[in-house]
């Protein structure tokens, strides 16, 4: 996969559903080659985790 745009689609998708084997491999190959997309991937995961942790701290504080 050569397109960064397509790679970002898969980075987003993997947060919402499991990727197929070929999607996963394609993304992996692209990330090995592209440092910009590696950063984007980390950021997508960070956003996902921060939002999730925020929701969980709401749950915790319900007492």
């Amino acid at each position: 996969m050569k397109s960064c745009k397509r790679a970002t689609e898969l980075m987003s998708l993997q947060l919402d559903r499991e990727l197929t084997t070929s999607e996963r491999l394609g993304l992996k190959m692209h990330l090995m080659m592209c440092r910009h997309c590696r950063k984007c991937n980390v950021q997508f995961q960070t956003l996902h985790r921060l939002a999730h942790d925020r929701s969980r701290s709401e749950e915790d504080s319900k007492g």
Binding site: E9, L13, L15, D16, L47
Partner: peptide, 8 residues
């Protein structure tokens, strides 16, 4: 999924 991709 398209909307979420763009949002992110």
């Amino acid at each position: 999924w398209v909307i979420l991709h763009r949002a992110r």
